[in-house]
Design a protein around this nucleic acid. Structure first.
Lengths: 205, 205
DNA sequence: CAGTGTGAAGCGCTTCACAGCT
DNA sequence: AGCTGTGAAGCGCTTCACACTG
């Protein structure tokens, strides 16, 4: 996590949503109320979030759409392409590789790994599937700092360990486990069934 | 959301994780400290979370694994099978249909919908893909209250509206938009790129 | 006016700390 | 002695309210 921790996590998540809203906004300016409306949050929240990064607005007018977008992208580290590796070429991994959102947002998949011998060497949407033993040199060679884990639960921690040893600093984990990682590595977990299970609670009876 | 709102949302999410930990635990008893260790949270947090549902523990001993598991499953509404429909049979939808986690946790997919004429009528892992015009009667017929949205961003709100009109009360949304829904419908959004984008912030430079 | 930026209040989740039980 | 259940403290995010600005 290092020294970046001054900005609240919920703010960071919302910032990304604001970016999308700005990208789809046609007018030259936009108010915090307008952003809030689309994002489904409080307008004061939007202003407070933005204020973490600086003062972009003009009282009585709002924010200049393009300017704000460009500034935020840069401050979020999304203004330049970022290399990512995907580990796990099962159903989920394949879907992620095909997912247009990643390409479109400046993430470039540089390699796909899987340890299933039936898959290694084959191509998946143009990417050659490599065995795990090529993790380290590939990551070093391309200077990759982000990885996506889409392997079964039982393999996830070992994969994470290998990725971290290879120098990865950020992990997006789709396996349903809590990964143990050093302090300087950031993990985000997306658990597909967890969310569905909490819905069951609200919906039953 | 209705009258269930007394339990904090973060607690609900953690409860599901505790369930998994209990399922994989071999000893007859388990302490809050042991659960906390695996879940990566504070032990007091575990006890507080559990206390929302009742008093299950035995001072000096801990919790009886199987008993606790059974009680929690029932209280979370996960003790009986629940019908789900999936809307969107693209890469993500297909991956979700294949995802073992759903089957294993008591969710039964009863129908898959997609409006792509090239897909309608075909089968996907045993499920016939149906056009959207069959949404309403299928949901009514099977008394479905949960739905998964895995369609492109632009179609998501319309799909949500149709699902809600058909009687769905809980939606797991994978499209990158904030859905507008009535108060009695619960939405959980899983945004695949959002998480990756926040990682970019921590990892850059 | 219309709308930003922000101190201060509000609120809810997390953690502490300890009484109480076995 | 070991561990639970919980009141109370702590802490951080959200919302309010308003001075300020073009």
């Amino acid at each position: 996590m290092a020294e970046h921790k001054q900005i609240p996590d919920p703010t960071l998540l919302r910032m990304c949503r604001y970016l999308r809203i700005l990208e789809r906004h046609d007018d030259a300016t936009i108010s915090s109320a307008a952003i809030a409306e689309v994002a489904g949050v409080n307008a004061a929240q939007v202003r407070k979030d933005l204020s973490f990064f600086g003062e972009f607005g003009q009282p009585g007018v709002g924010y200049h759409t393009k300017e704000l977008l460009a500034s935020l992208k840069r401050m979020m580290g999304l203004d330049e392409e970022m290399e990512v590796v995907v580990v796990g070429a099962g159903a989920l991994g394949s879907a992620l590789i095909n997912y247009p959102g990643f390409d479109n947002r400046g993430f470039r998949i540089v390699a796909v790994f899987d340890n299933n011998p039936a898959k290694v060497g084959h191509r998946l949407r143009g990417y050659e599937i490599m065995a795990f033993d090529r993790l380290k040199d590939t990551i070093a060679e391309h200077n990759v700092s982000l990885a996506i884990i889409a392997v079964p639960r039982t393999a996830a921690q070992a994969v994470a360990d290998a990725l971290i040893e290879a120098g990865v600093k950020g992990i997006l984990n789709f396996a349903p486990v809590t990964l143990k990682v050093p302090d300087d590595v950031v993990v985000r977990s997306v658990d597909l069934t967890l969310q569905l299970e909490t819905l069951a609670y609200y919906v039953r009876d």
